[in-house]
Write a protein that binds this DNA or RNA. Structure first.
Lengths: 194, 194
DNA sequence: AGAGAACGTTGACTTAAATCAACGTTTTAT
DNA sequence: ATAAAACGTTGATTTAAGTCAACGTTCTCT
């Protein structure tokens, strides 16, 4: 199971991992299974672990005062799930993350992350690249959120992460895009008609 | 002039900079002045430099097909201006950055950034912290963009960056918040009335 | 196999914010 | 000093998307 993580890290760094690195990774990551509908984190938690999705699907969202879910991230295989801000700064998370499918993750504690991984040059390089990439994606999403119409947002997501449409139902995709399920449904029937 | 940069970096890292570090920084950063209305970067540029604002104010924006400016970032003293994605990945930027006031910056080339700074542990620590912080802020802004009303967005900005309201006119603030100047004006007159 | 939940669609109506336009005030440049 | 540009406000109108509600279909669990 650690293989998928090794592959993932290898794909993002310059030099392949040594056997020693691999042993160390096997040591600090542990398996965590989350059944459908179960929480990985809940609002108010101070996140002590972060997780790499080996198999399954999850969603990250807030719940507003009317009880509505606002979804911000969707995770499938090879994504990192968690609230990095809560993890790094020891502050309560505003998010929930729960499994939309039965999920298997490799998780690491903050203690191990800081004391064992982050001082390894391969890992800090990997982590830097990942953080940077996430920040580019966030900037793009903010831009889309502020400038695109609902129809354009849908089209962009279909180009960027087509796999989401295979894994999540429409009402979840709609919330991720910041629109209602009704709006998404209408856009789809309009664009099909063309 | 380099003093402001030194102070800024010192405030974000564990151990203070040594004289040697300071000399090195003085060496790789050069001064750049930008007069009001002049560009720092333009759409299509591959950004070869990034800059620290010593004095002045700038805005980062795209221009849509109708010619409208959509503002995404505002920079004043002690902010880093540039398109990091273009800078790091050598891709054309979609943004313009221009000076809203006469501005003085300390700029660094990508070559020096990679070959001289990033291998210094104090700088990579600083850079990591900065990138991480920006990514947290972006997540928060995306969340606000998707879940808050215009009135709530204004209130949040007044709490987060009250200094922007002293430095930029309302129509620029409005665009930064993803609303029109008319909407911002109406919100203000409504909330004053209360 | 059957009940209930989850999901997607459609229609009628509402609403927050955008657009369009006009106008007064302030700032800027020469 | 003065003309032009930049800025902010207000009113009338439009519009994209949200809300509310009903209904049919498809999963899912036991």
């Amino acid at each position: 199971m650690i293989d998928k993580l090794i592959q993932h890290i290898n794909s993002k760094i310059e030099n392949k991992l040594s056997q020693h690195d691999i042993d160390l990774l096997s040591d600090v990551f542990r398996t965590k299974k989350i059944r459908k509908h179960q929480y990985f984190i809940q609002e108010g938690d101070i996140c002590k672990i972060a997780g790499f999705v080996v198999k399954g699907a999850l969603k990250k969202y807030t719940i507003d005062d009317t009880g509505k879910e606002n979804i911000f991230e969707l995770y499938i295989e090879n994504w990192w799930a968690g609230d990095k801000e809560s993890f790094m700064t020891d502050t309560p998370t505003p998010y929930y993350i729960d499994a939309y499918e039965d999920t298997e993750m490799l998780v690491i504690s903050k203690v191990d992350f800081l004391s064992k991984l982050n001082k390894l040059s391969f890992f800090s390089e990997f982590n830097r690249a990942l953080t940077e990439r996430q920040s580019f994606q966030l900037m793009k999403r903010l831009r889309s959120s502020q400038t695109l119409t609902a129809e354009q947002k849908l089209e962009e997501l279909q180009n960027t992460y087509p796999e989401f449409f295979q894994r999540f139902p429409q009402h979840i995709i709609a919330s991720y895009l910041g629109m209602t399920k009704e709006t998404l449904s209408r856009i789809r029937s309009n664009t099909l008609r063309k």
